[in-house]
């Protein structure tokens, strides 16, 4: 990569009265990419996004957008748009006025304004609702108005804070595809906050996984899935999450380490042929397959997938096996060891 990154955060930290918000955030975001900030509630995703937007000023570190140091610039000088977790629509303005607010502020001529409005409403499927007030819209429609307002300005960088959190599962899938398509078509750079890993994994080019104000891992979705940096990533990414075993349970790994294994890499074998003997704790039918939860001393989250509907009685004992090449080894502190 010879081109400098479009957005660059360098050692950014933010604290409130000594209380940690985020710390040591270093991140390069190339132009035209889709980056997802992923993590559990309260891990600092919104804070990172707000620092990027200029709604909070960092205590440490530098922020560059398009090669310009914007660390202390006002939000309005950063040439970006944002979709808020809470929509932040102006309640007394109609859909059209809401969407055109920024254009009006920036003195775009009326004709151009209306053209852009029409296009933005068309893209977001809001045509015909121009004159409604936000209070007269459903949650999903409001979300799309917020989206329309963000894209109408034609900024190259768009920040989104959980824009789909208030939609039902079906609509969420649809809008997810729309956002992804929009981002590709317009060629904009999107930084997208979510706590939903399927959302992050399916949409993003790069996923940034955070915990307690720190970045845990940055990488392509498949990297996070197949080469988790540490046990937190291993347990956070994937459904079902990776099972963790104390190394003492298996022979040949020494003591004090943690071994990770994914459900799809575990096979059930006839009694006597397996590497471990476990007890069935639950069977969960997922549709195409059945998830069998297993229990064994020194393990957490151990489970195995069986095709189709194939429930097993609770308390049954079964033998399982797996290949060493599918194992992930973490040291005592939870960090990944080579391999």
């Amino acid at each position: 990569m010879t081109t400098p990154p479009f957005v660059k955060l360098d050692g950014v930290a933010k604290r409130w009265n000594g209380q940690l918000g985020v710390e040591g955030i270093t991140l390069d975001i190339p132009e035209g990419s889709f980056t997802a900030l992923l993590g559990p509630s309260g891990c600092g995703k919104s804070t990172t996004l707000r620092l990027l937007a200029g709604l909070e000023l960092p205590d440490e570190g530098k922020i560059l957008i398009d090669d310009r140091d914007v660390t202390t610039s006002a939000a309005s000088d950063r040439n970006l748009s944002m979709v808020f977790q809470s929509y932040a629509l102006f309640p007394h303005l109609s859909v059209a006025e809401n969407v055109m607010f920024g254009l009006k502020v920036r003195r775009v001529p009326k004709k151009e304004r209306l053209e852009k409005l029409h296009r933005a409403l068309e893209i977001t499927g809001l045509l015909g609702l121009e004159d409604r007030k936000p209070g007269e819209l459903s949650g999903g429609q409001r979300q799309r108005v917020a989206l329309a307002r963000a894209i109408v300005a034609g900024q190259r960088l768009c920040l989104m804070d959980e824009p789909l959190s208030n939609l039902d599962a079906k609509l969420r899938n649809a809008v997810r595809k729309d956002i992804k398509k929009l981002q590709r078509d317009l060629g904009i750079t999107v930084v997208y906050v979510t706590h939903d890993q399927t959302e992050a994994m399916s949409m993003a080019d790069t996923v940034v996984l955070m915990k307690d104000g720190h970045i845990q891992q940055v990488g392509a979705p498949e990297d996070l899935y197949s080469r988790p940096n540490n046990t937190f990533v291993a347990e956070f990414v994937g459904a079902p999450p990776m099972a963790l075993l104390e190394s003492g349970v298996l022979g040949g790994f020494g003591e004090g380490k943690t071994i990770g294994i994914r459900a799809e890499n575990i096979q059930i074998v006839p009694k006597g042929d397996g590497r471990m003997r476990c007890t069935v704790t639950e069977s969960e039918f997922l549709g195409a397959e059945t998830l069998i939860g297993l229990d064994h001393a020194g393990t957490t989250g151990l489970c195995v997938l069986k095709p189709g509907l194939s429930m097993m009685a609770e308390g049954n004992e079964i033998d399982i096996t797996f290949n060493d090449e599918n194992l992930h080894v973490f040291d005592a502190a939870g960090q990944r060891l080579a391999g």
Binding site: F101, G102, V105
Partner: peptide
């Protein structure tokens, strides 16, 4: 904040 970002 939304107005700020829109440049108002």
């Amino acid at each position: 904040e939304a107005a700020d970002i829109e440049g108002a």
